[in-house]
Amino acid sequence: MTDETILEMLFARSEESISAIDEKYGHKCRKMALGILGNEQDAEECVNDAYLGLWNAIPPERPSSLAAFLYGVLRKLSLKKYRANTAGKRCSYYSDALDEIESTFASAETVESALEGKYLVEAMREFILTLNEENRAVFLRRYWFMESCREIAAALGTSEKNVTVRLTRTREKLRKFLEERGVEI
């Protein structure tokens, strides 16, 4: 079933649209939520919440990409859940992703104070544009979809080592990029 058809079903308030979405994107959603939360039950809950979020948002929203919209909603919900769940304990791919980013940036407070809210968002948007297609795919799969390096390597048809090296270089590039914008790291 095409995304367009699913969107039409959502606009027609057909509950079958949710089944169709689950059929089409459920597996990827669960995998992504699990990557962030590290807990199947929580992941399932977030996926269901994301479907509900989608149901409530469409209409009036008509996203150009249903998948990206859904994953975006799911990512936010999963991160929210992660924050609620974790107080010091880390147990997922998201935790690993956090560790990797933190190891690149020395001081937490500086980044927070200098790049808050929209400014940080804008900076990240600009940074993404500076990456080539390959590195962007690797970077986003790791830090947007929270996939493991092994999963990324398998998905992109390259070695795990290649992915790791690309990620290290990209993180370093991000650090320099933010520095150049006057952010003391």
Partner: peptide, 28 residues
């Protein structure tokens, strides 16, 4: 926490890059 802020900000990037990352294949 800085890392969380950065990863959260990353969540706001253009949807087209998300699609691109989903579908990208080095093997091609």
């Amino acid at each position: 926490m800085k890392a969380e802020k950065i990863l959260e900000a990353l969540g706001e990037i253009d949807e087209k890059f998300i699609e691109e990352a989903m579908n990208y294949n080095m093997k091609k």
